[in-house]
């Protein structure tokens, strides 16, 4: 799982280089888009960036989320993405 987390983190920074430049901490709890809880870390991706992230991860892991029951709209945190990829492997 740690290895998957590392790959996901690297892919997020590839899609959003500014997160890497600002050394934003990326954790399993980081919200991809926004969070109602002001204490939850937020990456602030937009929907296009999220699609690019998933496409990059699908290529990296050789999986297709479309072949699973996982919906991209259900992925809200980095942890959700990690779990989705791990589950699809």
């Amino acid at each position: 799982m740690t290895e998957v987390m590392n790959v996901v983190t690297r892919a997020i920074v590839d899609v959003r280089p500014d997160l890497g430049e600002s050394r934003t901490e990326i954790t399993r709890d980081s919200a991809l888009f926004y969070a109602a809880d002001p204490d939850q870390p937020v990456l602030g991706l937009d929907s296009m960036e999220a699609l690019e992230l998933i496409a990059a991860l699908e290529q990296e892991f050789g999986v297709e989320l479309a072949d699973t029951s996982i919906r991209i709209t259900d992925l809200r945190t980095v942890g959700d993405v990690v779990d989705a990829m791990s589950g699809a492997l």
């Binding site: 296009m48 699609l51 690019e52 998933i54 496409a55 297709e64 989320l65 479309a66 072949d67």
Partner: peptide
Amino acid sequence: GWSRMNRLGLL
């Protein structure tokens, strides 16, 4: 197969 198409292809 369809799931291998470019996710942003439509755009």
